[in-house]
Design a protein around this nucleic acid. Structure first.
Length: 727
RNA sequence: GCCCUCGUGGCGAAAUGGCAGACGCGCAUGCUUUAGGAGCAUGUCUUCGCAAGAAGAUAGAGGUUCAACUCCUCUCGAGGGCACCA
């Protein structure tokens, strides 16, 4: 009695010691370089990339871990299927987002970057992903931004970077201009301040030249539809005609309503009649030329024809100002007055930022020779260490206060010249990082940003995982830059990411996490309390990862229980069971298929069911335990390794091949099939020979059929439906 | 206004033309434990019924089909993208 009690106590206390176990395997994997990919020797390359984090706060956000776990499980699964998987990680720590945070806490951005780098990498080690730690990059590293500057120069030489005066979006808080894509509802994407319009001379990338190709290629991409739709809307192709009204040219998608045009409107600051009249080419009548607030200056030609009868806004304007309204029917023959043309909503990408924390734009302005690129041998243009790094506004960045930085010699004539003092947009840093990872420390990494042999072998990226919020920012810029580099002969492909998987957002108790609400989940706390594996499993069990999930502490407890349960069940004695054999075959099939389509929640559910079965039977074989450990490996890498070694194996579970199943044994074992009468489920019967005859003998079925005539629909293995006549 | 996605128990969800609610959380009852935790067993969509059972149920209404959470049409609701874009 006493012994039994002690045994029971011991069994219940045989808890999975996650802290010791996880740190033990981490150390071993890193000592043995388990996750280092042999890039040159790889036979079946699989580049598994996830959007690198920007360290805006002091630590890794659960949202990052959620996304990385989702991506890592897929990468681990691919490795077990025999692919050479390369899974790198780095930090996007250059740019406004990191700088704003540094400014807020009053720390120099460079110092802040050093601190966050240490923190982030420490946390990223703990989560148990198969990162190749020999290939990390940070966008603020001069070895990296040297090449960001190099890319700028190639763009300039190709005529894809240009300087122009234009009315731009100015954020009064961040004290810099922003690209159109970084303005949401008239507010700054980073700090939510109201934007103002400002006339400034700035550097632009000519993304509009690629509008049509960016649109056309969308059809070839294996991306979720809503991201493609979002890009399509953003590019905003609109087909129409150019029509001439005297000296004015208008763009319209409805040339067939030309004969109803009773006024012309130019973009203006207020509604005002110009005093001018022009001739409507279709009717020959004189119509007035107005300035109108509702006309947008930089779309189309900035001039519209007003057709009150066919456009609500034109009607409102006409009524307000007493302009004539002509009712008419649309007439295709009007198209003879115009010339077909296409317009895009997409604008050129504004690259300049009047800030400190970014790569200095590598251009020099000479009073005699004009703008010249910095000679490539002089790269990088180092960002100097300065103490007055705060932005002050009025169109110039902090570097403009430092003549020791900007005073230089013209690379052409050698005379006195000045460097550009703006830095480039952070989205330029992240638009090419995927090209750099595999080439880090390659033979040619010193001469070019990316090794052509490695690039050809490893790209385009096979699987990219990240947030949908980057649809019109990062994902569009990256596509554009890759296309441009392709045209310049640097990369052999046009599209950077063959497949893109968009994960959802993780919230806490139904609310978006934020510091002000005090509901921010720190993954470290949960890893310390429950272990990285339990947290990984919990994230993935919340629901489909493209839908995101709601983090609740109670659910987390449940998953820790599951981890313990699996661990305990490995102590069950050796026993053979026919039920387990079949269940195992089905499990192998299901888990493999579910991971492939990234339905991790149902893969985990299937394993739970299997574990419940094992628990009920009370024993299983060593081989069965081994197969389960292998299937757990992508989802719970530490637990799986611990279990695998418990079975006296000597090599890592992560190097094992994904198990195969026998399709004959893995069939859905129902045993029973449903019997319906008129499509309603009425009874069940054992599957097998003469199933229809046996179904008809059921009392319930007899009751429902009565003496009526019927016909039979039989779906083998699933259902028999008796359809009574008259139905 | 245009476009996209979605709507299933108390909760997260599963099933994508073939037995609606797998799996988990929570809850209830019992066993076990010095106690707490953990563990084990059973139950848990709604209504009627002691039960066996019956009827109903996937936002709502219609349709296609032997059969609809799943496909089609409309309505309502939620989330997202674009937008005085001519």
């Amino acid at each position: 009695m006493c012994v039994e009690r002690v045994y029971n106590w011991f069994m219940s206390e045989a808890k999975y010691a996650h802290r010791e176990i996880e740190s033990k395997w981490l150390k071993k994997w890193e000592d043995e370089e388990l996750n280092k990919t042999d890039l040159l020797g790889a036979k079946r390359p699989f580049y598994n990339l996830m959007m690198f984090p920007y360290p805006s706060a002091e630590g890794l956000h659960v949202g990052n871990m959620y996304a990385f776990t989702a991506a890592d499980i897929y990468g681990r699964f691919k490795r077990m299927q025999g692919f050479d998987v390369f899974e790198p990680i780095g930090l996007d720590g250059f740019g406004i987002h990191s700088e704003n945070y540094a400014l807020k806490i009053g720390r120099h951005p460079k110092e802040h970057a050093q601190i966050t780098q240490e923190n982030f990498y420490k946390q990223l080690h703990q989560v148990g992903n198969m990162f190749d730690w020999s290939k990390t990059l940070e966008t603020y590293d001069p070895e990296y931004y040297k090449w960001t500057q190099w890319i700028f120069i190639q763009m300039y030489k190709a005529g894809l970077a240009y300087r122009a005066k234009s009315e731009v979006n100015w954020c009064p808080h961040c004290k810099t201009v922003l690209a159109d894509e970084q303005v949401i509802d008239g507010k700054c994407e980073r700090c939510k301040s109201e934007m103002v319009r400002k006339e400034l001379e700035q550097w632009f990338f000519r993304i509009t030249k690629y509008a049509q190709r960016l649109l056309d290629n969308l059809d070839k991409l294996d991306w979720v539809q809503n991201i493609k739709t979002s890009q399509k809307n953003w590019i905003g192709r609109s087909e129409g005609m150019k029509l001439k009204f005297g000296k004015y040219e208008v763009f319209t998608t409805r040339p067939d309503t030309l004969h109803g045009a009773t006024f012309l409107a130019l973009a203006g600051k207020k509604d005002r009649f110009t005093g001018e009249m022009v001739i409507n080419p279709a009717t020959g009548k004189e119509i007035p030329v107005w300035e109108a607030v509702y006309v947008v200056a930089d779309y189309g030609t900035g001039v519209i024809m007003g057709v009150p009868a066919h456009d609500e806004r034109d009607m409102v304007f006409a009524k307000k100002h007493g302009i004539e309204v002509v009712e008419m029917e649309p007439d295709k023959s009007m198209e003879k007055y115009g010339e077909k043309t296409t317009h895009y909503h997409l604008r050129d990408w504004l690259i300049s930022r009047q800030r400190y924390w970014g790569p200095p734009i590598p251009m020099i302005n000479c009073p005699k020779c004009g703008w010249q690129p910095v000679p490539e041998k002089d790269l990088p243009v180092l960002l100097p260490d300065i103490s007055d790094y705060q932005p002050e506004g009025e169109g110039k960045g902090p570097l403009a206060k430092h003549p020791e930085f900007y005073k230089t010699a013209c690379p052409v004539c050698g005379g006195n010249a000045e460097r550009e003092t703006d830095v480039s947009d952070t989205f330029l840093d992240s638009a090419w990082y995927f090209l750099r990872y595999p080439s880090i420390r390659s033979a040619h990494s010193g001469q070019l940003p990316f090794d052509s042999e490695i690039t050809k072998k490893w790209m385009p990226v096979h699987m990219y995982t990240g947030g949908a919020e980057h649809a019109n920012l990062h994902l569009l810029y990256t596509r554009f830059l890759t296309m441009a580099l392709h045209d310049l002969g640097y990369v052999p492909f046009e599209e950077p990411f063959k497949r893109f998987f968009a994960h959802g957002m993780i919230v806490k108790d139904g609310a978006k996490m934020s510091k002000s609400k005090g509901n921010v989940v720190n993954p470290d706390d949960y890893i310390a309390k429950y272990g990285a594996d339990a947290l990984r499993l919990y994230f993935m069990f919340l629901g489909p990862i493209d839908q995101g999930g709601d983090f609740r502490d109670a659910g987390m407890e449940g998953m820790a229980r599951f981890v313990n349960r699996v661990y305990r069940l490995f102590d069950l004695p050796e026993a053979k069971s026919e039920d387990i054999v079949k269940a195992e075959q089905r499990l192998i099939k299901k888990v493999g298929e579910d991971i492939e389509r990234r339905h991790y929640n149902t893969a985990i559910a299937a394993m739970m069911e299997y574990i419940n079965l094992i628990n009920g039977i009370g024993g299983w074989t060593k081989e069965q335990k081994g197969i389960l450990a292998i299937m757990l490996a992508p989802l719970a890498p530490f637990l799986a390794e611990e279990l695998w070694f418990k079975l006296a194996h000597k090599d890592s579970v992560h190097l094992q091949a994904w198990p195969k199943y026998d399709p004959g044994l893995a069939v859905q074992e129902r045993g029973v099939i449903a019997i319906q009468v008129n499509g309603k489920m009425r009874d069940r019967v054992e599957d097998g020979p003469d199933v229809e005859q046996r179904a008809l003998q059921s009392d319930k079925i007899k009751k429902f059929i009565g003496g009526a005539k019927y016909r039979t629909i039989f779906v083998p293995g699933k259902v028999i439906n008796f359809v009574l006549n008259g139905k």
